[in-house]
Design a protein around this nucleic acid. Structure first.
Lengths: 155, 155
DNA sequence: TATTATCTCTACTGAATTAGTAGAGTTAGT
DNA sequence: ACTAACTCTACTAATTCAGTAGAGATAATA
């Protein structure tokens, strides 16, 4: 499962992707728009900034904004930064490799083989979807959803 | 990430799959073979029994054995029983559905759409691999590994 | 230059989960 | 009766998660 921290990061980055090119955005704006506790979000955005994904401006008219184009920031990048789990077991993690303590022999571990396949299938989605994709997908869903609501209202 | 409990369950079930048809197996045997703390393993096997995957016999000559054929027990069955996470977010979990508290509208949530794709890709592996498959895969790996070791030794 | 807006940083706390352990109880075989 | 095994409930320590507190730094602006 993704932690709340990771989900908050994904949501915040999606908002910033949608805002890309329109100047900085306040923590408090993002926090309200996405139902994220403000103090918690502060920490998260700071981490994303220290990792080089965001930049910030202080003082009036300040806020956060993307440092790179939103189509170059992949969901897997964000999940990894937040320490989120992509692999099922640490011994197949690309970025946080650790041997499984209880495992006698990694090379002949069947679970590991399966975990490798799951990891690759998962990355096939997460490393190929950008926050721009996510923002657009959401916009489409909102449009679709409105249409459906109108239909059932006008029936 | 899979919990240790889930990994232990998978390993224990693989051992029992390999032993299928050869009578009951002692907790302590499994525990030693797989480096699993015995007391912990007791709890795990009991749960698997209560869930209907295993049966047990008490007293001398007793132990645990599979109740169903090992090719009908899928990895996803075991992971779910152990409360393990298959979905990235609760709102796309097939067996443990819960809305994400912070989510305003499930139907238009982009993360949810992505999580659905990841879930399906993950299940494509876990729900189609049985503990028999796992045991066989491991046996193959052991044979391969031996060959490689021999080669490099005889060189 | 004083004030205000905004991000920055460290550290703390409470709740939940995880990974086990303890120990008495039950049942089956000999 | 005795012993070998599983059964069951409950406890504990360590870790992680989610969130909060509060002082500090910096930029804009009046």
């Amino acid at each position: 499962m993704l932690s709340k921290k990771t989900k908050y990061a994904l949501k915040a980055m999606t908002v910033l992707a949608r805002n890309h090119g329109k100047g900085p955005m306040l923590i408090s704006t993002i926090s309200e728009q996405e139902n994220i506790p403000k103090k918690f979000l502060e920490n998260i955005l700071l981490e994303l900034k220290n990792a080089g994904l965001l930049a910030s401006k202080k003082g009036a008219g300040g806020g956060y904004y993307l440092l790179k184009s939103p189509d170059t920031i992949m969901l897997s990048d964000i999940i990894r930064l937040m320490g989120g789990p992509i692999a099922l077991v640490p011994c197949v993690s690309l970025n946080f490799y650790e041997p499984c303590e209880e495992c006698k022999d990694e090379l002949t571990c069947g679970i590991r083989q399966i975990a490798l396949r799951v990891r690759d299938a998962t990355l096939e989605v997460l490393a190929k979807t950008s926050i721009k994709d996510l923002a657009e997908k959401e916009d489409n869903l909102i449009v679709q959803h409105k249409k459906i609501r109108q239909k059932s209202t006008h029936k």
